[in-house]
Design a protein around this nucleic acid. Structure first.
Lengths: 226, 226
DNA sequence: ACAAAAGTGTTAAGAATACACCCATGT
DNA sequence: ACATGGGTGTATTCTTAACACTTTTGT
């Protein structure tokens, strides 16, 4: 164990979900370097010796997508992916974070070099081919999100501060990829005590106004079943 | 991104569970090097540039505990733990694997240098202070195991090939840290179709013999609720 | 005979599912 | 008037949880 010990390539990637038009989307950028120049990929970067994986994630999100982690709720424990042959320079390990965003507009950010980064939230249903093993990382993250959504209130991170019950239901449906019964959903979600009415009502469109809800203060992660 | 880019210290640790006398235990070794020389720790080592985390895990298990990964069922995705200050040499990341063992006797293995490694399965209820942040890694892993045990058949990895229903129930109780009702447990576990009787019966002790069961062939990970 | 684990059913409460109509609004 | 999403209740099925006694063996 000497000072010259060489470690594998270590990178961090963020799998940032957001709802766009009731579709579950994931944040992608176009790679500005080889390998996979021009291909779509999760925002990510090398972790250097003097920064934590979390710091590297924050840096790459700002640099490549213009999004600050203060706009994102990171969930859970980071996962490690071994990906042999993912990089021509040798064996590489990536640490994947899962995050939830709401109302975030990625903006092209031009840093030291201004190659394209072209950040976009892309619907999971219409993903292009992704660089590296990022497709399987996205699938893994989506699966985790499904499990969490069905058994906790994490979806708060995907919704605006206030919302109607139909919006909430749509969020669940988008994440779980299945339809829910309106009456059963309302019964369930109301009985959990996670949300409370704001007293306001949303008067939009040619139909009856809907009551507006918010997640209760101090409703930390709780477990239930949808 | 040049060839001299320096990455954080990258290590791998195994959280290997085994049942000993109906208690859930985890495999620990005594550290043979600074830092934490002599302290109890999870078996683990540095991952070098030309090996995968999985290979490093296999190597450290053999070297420090004499256990081969063929004797272990690794479960799930590896987790990454950022642990600032975990190593005096700088920021370090460890990749934790969770594994299940049965009937495994760790043996002291003496490799290139023969410092103590002293591998033992230690009851979770009686853990000593652990090196680094290993205590929180163990707690995290135990939590994952509880969730998996309550919702799948992973516990197969902790049990002998054949077992009585009471042994199976004890395994669940040890992992979940709570008592289960015998009749409800049997009803449930039988209805899941995960196990089948071997036709044999175990005639041990001054009491009625018990039927012996095994997990069904091809019963890959399945989900249920205990 | 007795100690010790094996084995077995029923009931009650709660949770999940399936299902159809009226309401309030804007155009 | 009509189109649109907002809102509500009940019956059925399934799942869970609580609970105690008889059986078979070894000593």
């Amino acid at each position: 164990m000497n000072e010259d010990f060489e470690f594998p390539i270590l990178t961090v990637d963020g799998v940032i979900f957001q709802l766009v038009n009731d579709e579950l989307c994931v944040l992608l950028t176009q790679r500005a370097f080889e390998p996979f120049l021009g291909a779509w990929a999760l925002p990510g970067m090398y972790i250097s010796k003097d920064q934590t994986s979390r710091e590297a994630l924050e840096l790459t999100l700002i640099q490549k997508t213009g999004i600050s982690t203060s706009q994102i709720e990171l969930i859970e424990q980071p996962y490690a992916f071994d990906a042999p042959q993912r990089d021509p320079r040798g064996y590489a390990v990536t640490i994947a974070y899962i995050g939830l965003a709401r109302d975030v507009m990625p903006g092209v950010h031009r840093g030291a070099d201004d190659k394209i980064q072209n950040p976009h939230f892309t619907s999971l249903a219409k993903l292009p081919k992704l660089a590296y093993d990022h497709m399987s990382i996205v699938q893994f993250a989506h699966n985790r999100l499904k499990i969490l959504a069905a058994s906790s209130n994490v979806l708060a991170g995907l919704l605006p501060r206030t919302f109607t019950l139909l919006q909430l239901q749509s969020a669940y449906e988008a994440v779980l990829s299945r339809k829910l019964d309106k009456r059963n959903f309302r019964k369930k979600i109301q009985s959990l005590g996670l949300i409370e009415t704001t007293g306001e009502s949303s008067r939009e469109g040619a139909h009856r106004p809907a009551q507006v809800y918010r997640f209760c203060n101090g409703s930390t992660l709780r477990h239930h079943t949808i």
